[in-house]
Design a protein around this nucleic acid. Structure first.
Length: 138
DNA sequence: GCCAACGTTGGC
DNA sequence: GCCAACGTTGGC
């Protein structure tokens, strides 16, 4: 069964446009224990929203987990992990944080409740609501 | 083990 | 640019 996730990136550091070009990207640099735990819970073929933090503040794309957690090559002490994500599609109507905050059914989403967490699970119910909002047809 | 000081994230 | 929330560090 497929699990759902949301991963954040600041466009100035790594944008959706770069993800579109690269197709498959190692998701490195996560340095938070809860986010690390979430990375390690990801299974191949799980799906994730790609969210632009700081600039944009909207869900712009969907990726699929291509390779499960392995040691982050950017961490010389080998304490942190990363996954590989594969581009699936852009979200036709980007889902803004403002929009998400306006939907009562989404008030418990980690994106709002734990605003500093960069890798988080999304329930299948929330995933469906968000796909409808973004006019996503998978 | 506690907590003050400090650093970072990310929305506004 | 500000600041709330949260994580980390280091003295005690």
């Amino acid at each position: 069964m497929t699990n759902y996730w949301l991963i954040k990136s600041e466009p100035s550091a790594f944008s959706w446009q770069e993800q579109l070009r690269n197709k498959i990207e190692p998701w490195t640099g996560v340095r938070n224990h809860q986010a690390k735990k979430n990375l390690q819970s990801m299974k191949k073929n799980d799906l994730a929203f790609f969210y632009h933090s700081n600039e944009g503040k909207e869900i712009v794309g969907i990726v699929r987990i291509d390779k499960e957690a392995y040691p982050d090559p950017t961490d010389t002490e080998h304490r942190w992990f990363c996954v590989d994500v594969e581009t699936i599609c852009s979200v036709p109507v980007p889902i803004t944080l403002k929009k998400i905050k306006s939907i009562p059914e989404l008030e418990d989403i980690a994106l709002i409740k734990q605003s500093r967490l960069s890798v988080m699970p999304i329930t299948s119910e929330h995933w469906k609501i968000l796909c409808d909002l973004g006019n996503v047809k998978l």
